[in-house]
Amino acid sequence: MLDTAPKLADPDAVFVTLVRAHHDLSPEESRRLDAALVLLLANHIGDGAVLEQAIEQARRAVRAPTGATEDQGTPP
């Protein structure tokens, strides 16, 4: 089961680490880097079902129209 509860002690640092990983890379290299990271982490997790749940969450986030998330409520 995919665990999406906050777990990182220093989330800002992790965000910066991920962005910095792409420093100096061409767009093509950047894309490969992300793919390599996903592959390494998918193998670390070692569970196809968890990966599928993560993909579902990620796709939902990407496909959601901006400004229409539930948190913002419905305009009057």
């Binding site: 093509e28 894309r31 880097l33 992300d34 793919a35 390599a36 996903v38 592959l39 390494l40 193998n43």
Partner: peptide, 24 residues
């Protein structure tokens, strides 16, 4: 697709060092 190529190439690059990627 571009994404498929990125994953394919990443597998090939990781395969040099990592057994898990060789199997892909």
């Amino acid at each position: 697709t571009e994404a498929a190529r990125a994953y394919r190439d990443a597998v090939l690059l990781l395969a040099r060092e990592h057994a898990f990627a060789r199997r892909m």
